[in-house]
Nucleic acid binder design. Structure first.
Lengths: 126, 126, 126, 126
DNA sequence: GTGGTCTAGACCACT
DNA sequence: GTGGTCTAGACCACG
């Protein structure tokens, strides 16, 4: 498993960090349908995390339909249609943004101001 | 105290919910400099929340410079210059949006897509 | 918490045994809406089970809408309308039976035979 | 071997799925006494399952008296009297249904309700 | 080898 | 006090 990073210091639970990153990798196409993920124990060792934490993440991802697990065989990325992937991606995008856009409105910030700042951050932040 | 809403079901701590809403009201001009806030006990009763929780919120708001407490008199909204308010508002705005942009980039979402969705949310959502 | 029994020997996971029994108690009206359940730690001690096992059960029950948890306060039986309870009960009933009725059909057993045996078991089994 | 279906996704062990289906076929008369079953390897290939799994199923079926293996010749469906078949069928039926009745009683569901639902499932479900 | 489950004890944040 | 999270090590069933 490459490109997964965990912070034990963050106040975001480890399983949540993992969940978010794997969803992002699946939705961005980095992790392809059918990919066989490393065993929970291998994963746990690599990330220096408890088996149970990985298991919990996997369970959440299964419930959301991103993974499927075959007992005694392993865990695989679900086969999702491109259409379905796009939908999930769009839903997630809206979910991420709507809470914060509402917060900005509560701060009495204009739409134009928000758009301006987004452009600025998107381009300048590495 | 009007226009403050608390959810016990949310996974966001109550003191955080309160903090965010009061900051928003100050930065948006809804709560003006020098306003005398209700006493901790009154506040606690109104919101059906523990006194400790209100106390914690007030402390955080004082630390951030939004409130100041005068022993035996009460708690007041700090006197801040318009310039200073604008600066705090802008900083908060950037902080909120930076996180979102990072997440979107991880999802491989283009700048244009983000802008489109933001416009949509800003206009359509009540 | 009364009337909950756990077998460490059964091959059914503990959290599943607990889940089933609590659902049954809620649907049968034994556990009423709003009831404050014992803390996960108290529960764990009483049943001589790990805290994490109770937590897992509670989580599943929350996902199914039977419980709601307020961090730092406790866990409560959800407020469900009688109608909603009846529906859940009926759905569960169908779920329990359909698998087995189908199995009986595969055994080439007639409807009448099944009904006869059910009546017999229902009346005679303590 | 016809009419045997395996699901790798189910949480029921594969050998159990196989076991149940073969027992059903024997008890329903679909598989007749003396029938020569395909070799373990053939079976394994057909069902895309490990040889070990088939071996385990066969062993269980032998233990229960449904199959007998003659070294160097193959595996055959045991010769059972009709009476003996009927008895096994009836026992299995009771075993399956007892569990259900117990669960229903815990849910405080009346005998009549159960009978009604069973009729419904038996007739309507394909 | 794989996943599935469990424990006992620990630390933290919230009320 | 409450829930939320995590670990390390263990045992089992399955393939």
């Amino acid at each position: 498993m490459k490109n997964v990073f965990i912070s034990h210091m963050s106040d975001i639970p480890i399983y949540q960090q993992l969940y978010d990153q794997i969803v992002a990798q699946i939705l961005s196409g980095e992790l392809k349908s059918g990919t066989n993920l490393p065993s929970i124990r291998t994963m746990a060792k690599e990330l220096r995390v408890s088996v149970i934490t990985i298991k919990k993440t996997w369970e959440e991802l299964e419930k959301s339909g991103y993974l499927r697990t075959i007992s005694g065989k392993g865990t695989y990325v679900s086969t999702l249609s491109d259409q379905s992937l796009e939908k999930k991606k769009y839903d997630l995008l809206r979910e991420i943004l709507s809470k914060d856009v509402l917060q900005c409105k509560a701060l009495d910030i204009s739409k134009e101001e928000i758009l301006e700042v987004i452009k600025d951050i998107y381009d300048h932040k590495k």
